[in-house]
């Protein structure tokens, strides 16, 4: 790894100052993506600004029907949270299936969505639930946040502080894991929410996570796996790589959508 200066600010103000004062700063949370990337010299920031020491960043709290999860809450904390479980057990299940136990002890929800890996789990969960991403500058709807493969609506140096999720009427997640990496080869999150049925697909799209209008329409009229059978899921815009062809991914989207609906 190249030399890097480490900062651990205790407040957002100090974090903003540390980012602003550095030649090229990167925000550090659980490090489960950033550190492997730095080890491989694919990233070489001059400074890393660790956001885990900022007060409130790991809190998880319920108010009314909404759970707010601090950006630095680990996958293990979300998986075990009774607050998350009361609002959306499917999100806790999703967190429990990310990577392996050691990765879940360190990796965070904020880091996962800031990274927006096209095969990551949380982007599907948050887009499927119509979550709100809270930063030190504004609130961003999940529909506007995930803008493409490894890209988001975040400005340079903008810090995610929390994610809020409203209680869905029902929700479910199913993923077909890449057997080596455990990332999603295809993952589908389905939710019936106040604003209608939402279906988000990860692991498959060439532009990262996306909503599937055909599956949403089918599940709106009939919430069942039979309804999914009648949907035409094409392979246009899906990834083809050594793990799976676009056609196979299209097939998996239907299978995962059925499993997710059945799990809800």
């Amino acid at each position: 790894m190249y030399a890097v200066n480490y900062h651990k600010p205790a407040s957002i103000e100090d974090a903003v100052a540390a980012i602003g004062g550095a030649e090229e700063a990167k925000i550090l949370a659980g490090g489960q993506t950033l550190l492997p990337t730095m080890k491989q010299h694919l990233a070489a920031p001059s400074d890393v600004v660790d956001v885990r020491g900022i007060s409130g960043m790991t809190d998880i709290a319920v108010r009314g029907d909404t759970v707010t999860i601090g950006a630095a809450a680990t996958h293990a904390a979300v998986a075990a949270s009774s607050e998350v479980d009361t609002v959306c057990p499917a999100l806790a299940t999703l967190a429990a299936g990310i990577g392996d136990p050691a990765v879940r002890h360190m990796g965070t929800i904020g880091g996962s969505i800031a990274n927006n890996d096209p095969a990551a789990d949380y982007p599907a969960g948050l887009l499927g639930l119509g979550a709100t991403i809270v930063t030190n500058q504004r609130e961003i709807a999940a529909d506007d946040f995930f803008t493409g493969m490894f890209t988001t609506a975040l400005e340079d140096g903008e810090i995610i502080t929390a994610v809020s999720v409203g209680k869905p009427d029902r929700a479910g997640y199913a993923k077909f894991r890449n057997p080596a990496s455990r990332y999603a080869m295809v993952g589908v999150f389905v939710a019936q929410t106040g604003s209608g049925v939402r279906v988000a697909v990860t692991g498959a799209g060439e532009d990262g996570v996306f909503r599937h209008a055909g599956l949403e329409a089918a599940l709106s009229s009939n919430w069942s796996s039979e309804a999914v059978d009648g949907v035409d899921v094409g392979s246009d815009g899906l990834m083809s790589d050594i793990h799976a062809s676009a056609d196979y991914r299209a097939h998996l989207i239907k299978v995962m959508a059925k499993r997710a609906a059945a799990a809800s």
Partner: peptide, 11 residues
Amino acid sequence: AVKSCTVLAAS
């Protein structure tokens, strides 16, 4: 349990 190769000592 954490992967010690993926944590900074400084943290």
